[in-house]
Nucleic acid binder design. Structure first.
Lengths: 260, 260
DNA sequence: GCCTAGGTCCCGTGG
DNA sequence: CCACGGGGCCTAGGC
């Protein structure tokens, strides 16, 4: 099901939006509005965006997305569970079409005001599929659980998501010499805060065992910038560079061929 | 400028997409495709999404966004600076329209394959405005710089973004008793890592001044969960609950009235 | 419901 | 160019 209008008047867009986006039967529907609009947002912050051509998507779960011609992220938006209403508004002698959206927690509202609409369309989307994804941090943890040798010969994992005073340790185990090992996994390039986190786990563990025991801390990530290595060394921590091969993208050679 | 096709064939969509999205003159253009597609992504992770109705936006900066009927975030996407190509593909005796996108750093590719297209449209978006936003962390820092009394009577700020070994301190100053104060600002609810960060700054400062000086560390945020307070106390750090009033959203009463 | 942590985070800024 | 940290982050999972 697809319905659309080209260059509608504000009143026409308003009627169209209400017709396809209100009521229970509209729960699979999505509205797309393209035109010249300005956006006002007040909530956790406050923002203004002057007049310009944008693509706006409204979903029946209450999501609203305002996209400019550049950028991967919406310039303004509302998350799901937002209430959305459509209106016309008189401004300076001209009529405007307005998408007004509002939610309570946190209190946030957004006005998208159109002075012209190039196109509005409504679509019934039939879709029961969910994304299946591989290569998340939990997959890497799985991999290491199944074969701790990829980190170190003789390593034995005893706990996953082990709770400490300062948060949860990704992996906890003992090395070949029975020394406790705390492992922090990062699926992408680690930041200094990852080092602080690991350090906190190690200190916490030492504290609980009244200092006597030696504890090792290992940061495990696909890359390890020099600054991170320095910080780790300063804090008597270790690292392993570990990329999980869930099946890599084709190498540039073959991909560029394919791309022509 | 708006052009569109309803229920086009794969070949027609392909030609349409190439006509409006290739070449220099298309730099203000955006393509919207609505139809039944599946998505395959390989790169930093790997994912599959089965057949279903979606809205796909392609921008001329290379951004590609795949939206399902629910959710504020795209289910699949490519960021700007991705190369995008359009194709038709023969699969199982039927013809498919394919949006293929690829980038080198990091190596990532995505295929969006349509078996039916309900609508395709191309839009020239004229827009030179950028978002103006208030209420960012830097605004809160401004506010406190201008009136340190909101944190504490007698506080004097001497540095902003003061560099230390472990990163930049948001605000640095001295209290009424000339004791140095390190202030970490969070515009939203703080996480344990904010405490670790503050702790690191304090330790670093003490280290540089060979232990003798007492240094205070204050975490400043709009809310302060119990666990965070506990962590702060354990680490001999302080906190201030501080909401910056850049002009709050209307209270629920008046807004709900307005909403009817 | 709050809180915590991950993300194909994205994105700007500063070195 | 990479590195770092903020974000109206969003979103899923735990309790």
């Amino acid at each position: 099901m697809t319905h659309m209008l080209l260059s509608p008047t504000p009143a026409e867009v308003n009627e169209f939006a209400d017709a396809y986006m209100r009521g229970m039967r509209s729960k699979d529907n999505v509205l797309v509005v393209v035109g010249c609009c300005c956006v006002e947002y007040v909530g956790r912050a406050r923002s203004m965006l002057g007049w310009g051509g944008r693509v706006v998507i409204v979903k029946s779960d209450g999501s609203v997305l305002v996209h400019q011609k550049v950028g991967g992220a919406p310039v303004n938006w509302q998350p799901p569970d937002t209430l959305v209403r459509y209106r016309t508004e008189a401004g300076n002698g001209i009529s405007l079409f307005v998408i007004y959206s509002y939610r309570l927690k946190p209190p946030e509202k957004m006005y998208v005001r159109f002075k012209t609409v190039d196109m509005v369309s409504a679509h019934r989307l039939r879709d029961d599929r969910t994304l299946r994804i591989m290569g998340a941090e939990s997959d890497i943890v799985d991999r290491i659980m199944g074969d701790p040798g990829v980190i170190e010969e003789g390593l034995r994992i005893t706990d996953r998501e082990k709770q400490t005073r300062s948060g949860a340790i990704d992996l906890f185990g003992v090395d070949r010499d029975h020394i406790p090992v705390i492992i922090e996994i990062k699926r992408s390039q680690p930041t200094p805060s990852a080092v602080l986190q690991l350090k906190a786990y190690v200190l916490d563990h030492q504290h609980r065992h009244t200092g006597a025991v030696r504890v090792r801390g290992i940061l495990c990530a696909p890359s390890m910038p020099v600054m991170i290595r320095t910080l780790l060394t300063e804090n008597k921590l270790e690292w392993r560079v570990f990329k999980c091969e869930f099946e890599q993208v084709d190498d540039a050679q073959s991909t560029l061929e394919e791309f022509t």
